[in-house]
């Protein structure tokens, strides 16, 4: 008795998903079952929740497959216009919730407040929000000396255990971090600066022939990036791991930066979740993968359960 819960980003800057086209199948002990998924939440709120119920009974294995149609877009920012956006008097509630600390993103810790104060030298509120975010992200990325590109714990045959994460606070003192840790830390710094920000866990299609990415060229996989809110405009995506290197320390903050805001490759990524373990009351288990299970209403089982995730992404091409 329990459930599998998956998040689907429905409306974001680079992703539009339509859960009216949701298809699910489930096998218990290898035997196909008639089951339907429950979809909760308003698609226009930006995110919906897909729940699959697991009946009570002695079970060795549960296999579920959930798919839906989505569109992904390339993204561009008009840098000059973005730099004119002013700080809001108050954030709208849907956005303001991404100012609060969350598991793995301990933005209320003094270390992040001190980092923001030192980096902005008291000019934060006098700097346009877009330029402030850009420089804070750059300075955060520059703090990391060693980045381990292996952000996923893999099981082979295309299946994934989940993201290798220490979270933002541990990452500030770690010898080596992962791209997921960089995302958590950048989001923590932006939240500490009063800018709503969130991680995005998504599926990547493979880059085809494009050499300008550090992600695999030839296969789909889970990926993670971050985004922050530009008041009245929407969420601006950026990928700190891709931004790293590429002359970042010397880059002019008034010029476009690769992988910050303007990302051609975003049409090869579809966002799923804004939390590594969504809808789990802030609990992140060992290696999260953007979805969660419960057993008998608990997020911890009285015995060892192993889960594996395979991203599914079939391209229907340009539309």
């Amino acid at each position: 008795g329990g459930s599998i819960t998956i998040a689907a980003a429905t409306v974001d800057t680079a992703t539009v998903s339509d859960l009216r086209g949701l298809e699910t199948s489930i096998r218990l002990n290898g035997i196909p079952q008639n089951t339907s998924a429950r979809v909760e939440g308003d698609p226009l709120s930006g995110s919906q929740r897909i729940s699959l119920g697991i009946p009570r009974g002695p079970l060795q294995t549960v296999s579920a497959r959930v798919t839906w149609p989505a569109i992904a877009f390339s993204i561009g920012v008009d840098e000059q216009m973005a730099a004119k956006v002013t700080w809001p008097r108050e954030w709208v509630p849907e956005v303001a919730k991404f100012l609060a600390p969350s598991q793995g993103i301990q933005s209320d810790n003094e270390i992040f407040k001190a980092f923001v104060a030192k980096t902005t030298e008291g000019r934060l509120r006098r700097t346009p929000i877009y330029l402030a975010a850009k420089d804070l992200v750059r300075r955060t990325i520059m703090e990391f000396r060693n980045v381990d590109s292996q952000t996923l714990v893999r099981e082979g045959q295309g299946t994934i255990r989940g993201f290798r994460l220490q979270g933002a606070l541990s990452s500030t003192g770690a010898l080596s971090v992962t791209p997921g840790d960089m995302v958590c830390t950048c989001v923590a710094v932006l939240r500490a600066a009063g800018i709503p920000a969130r991680p995005v866990i998504g599926i990547y299609s493979g880059s085809g022939s494009n050499p300008d990415t550090k992600l695999p060229k030839d296969r789909k996989t889970l990926c993670v990036w971050a985004e922050f809110n530009l008041p009245g405009c929407g969420w601006v995506p950026f990928d700190p791991y891709e931004m790293r290197g590429r002359g970042l320390p010397q880059a002019n903050v008034n010029q476009p930066w690769k992988w910050f805001g303007t990302i051609k490759q975003m049409n090869r990524r579809v966002g799923l979740a804004y939390d590594f373990a969504p809808f789990n009351h802030g609990m992140i288990r060992d290696w999260p993968a953007g979805w969660v299970w419960t057993v008998s209403g608990q997020t911890t089982a009285p015995f060892r359960l192993v889960d594996a995730t395979a991203p599914l992404m079939v391209s229907r091409g340009q539309i």
Binding site: I4, V11, D12, T13, A14, V16, S17, E23, L44, G46, Q60, T61, V62, S63, A64, R65, V66, T67, W68, P69, A70, I71, A72, F73, S74, I75, G76, V77, D78, E79, Q80, M81, A82, V85, T159, L230, C233, G234, W235, V236, K264, N267, V270, L272, A289, F303, R304, L305, V306, D307, A308, T309, A310, P311, L312, M313, V314, S315, G317, I319
Partner: peptide
């Protein structure tokens, strides 16, 4: 236009369609 189109200065282009999802296995 597609739902939730961002307001300027953010712009979408080059849409691609996908069927996305997850295949999940849980075992004891």
């Amino acid at each position: 236009s597609w739902p939730g189109c961002p307001a300027p200065p953010l712009y979408r282009s080059d849409p691609r369609g996908y069927t996305v999802g997850l295949a999940i296995d849980i075992g004891a």
